[in-house]
Design a protein around this nucleic acid. Sequence first.
DNA 1: CAATTGATGTAATGTCATAACATATAATGC
DNA 2: GCATTATATGTTATGACATTACATCAATTG
Lengths: 131, 131
Amino acid sequence: MTADLTRNQNLVMKTLSGAEGPLSAYTILDRLRDDGLRAPLQVYRALDKLLEMGLVHRLESLNAFVACAHPHCHEQELIAFAICDGCGKVEEFSDDVVKERLDGWATSHRFRAAKTTIEIRGDCGGCTDRS
Amino acid sequence: MTADLTRNQNLVMKTLSGAEGPLSAYTILDRLRDDGLRAPLQVYRALDKLLEMGLVHRLESLNAFVACAHPHCHEQELIAFAICDGCGKVEEFSDDVVKERLDGWATSHRFRAAKTTIEIRGDCGGCTDRS
DNA sequence: CAATTGATGTAATGTCATAACATATAATGC
DNA sequence: GCATTATATGTTATGACATTACATCAATTG
Ligand SMILES: [Zn+2]
Ligand SMILES: [Zn+2]
Ligand SMILES: [Zn+2]
Ligand SMILES: [Zn+2]
């Protein structure tokens, strides 16, 4: 797996894949100090490529990054995230009706959408139970 | 209008209302230097209150703030933003079907949503014409 | 009037991201 | 082979966004 990635891309990818939730670029950097990474740009450059490839998502409301949960079918676009503020876990899902509605709005307003962000912040069931 | 706001809140609100598009907190600060504001915190504190009151929205994908376009009905609606990367203009809209679908997902996954972000980045009709 | 609450002022710090420049490596075309 | 181009990398410095900590001031309240 991930055989076509460069060294730094591979390091960042493995860090995100092994993480329990989203990580900031600087947290990724800290976890890769022992592997020789020294500067933020090394992480950001790798993240840029991984984002292009669809292997990683950026969570705008968190300024953090997460490994894609469904790396196979990342072509359907319009991915939504449910982010638990309690435990930090992220659920990734998509909804064709939501996509249809937003596409419809864009079309009727002559807006050419390039990227759509949908992020739901709140508490997951487990965290609601515990609180 | 905005009679119940404090001095700093009023300054920030007027700056955002008079702006052609979203502004960062530091840009707001720069525009209020002559009014006596000196530190970022003065702006951020005002913004926090304005966000609470629903007079201002934060655009997560931009790290910027914009005056609410419909300050009357900012109640239970799910607000979406279309942000033009060309001219910076922001359109604010809501869609009950989108809200239903996301609420449905949350309910079926026992996720208690606190705040939902929907932001569409792209190009508006005018900018598409010009390019 | 003492106590509480909320707003303000200021300095310092923390967190996230990119610019600019140098070097290295790999593929491409002649 | 060898110049050309493209891509990846390493490093330093800087820019952009946001909060912590502490002090002060004014309005409210019991
Ligand atoms: Zn994904
Ligand atoms: Zn949780
Ligand atoms: Zn609004
Ligand atoms: Zn535009």
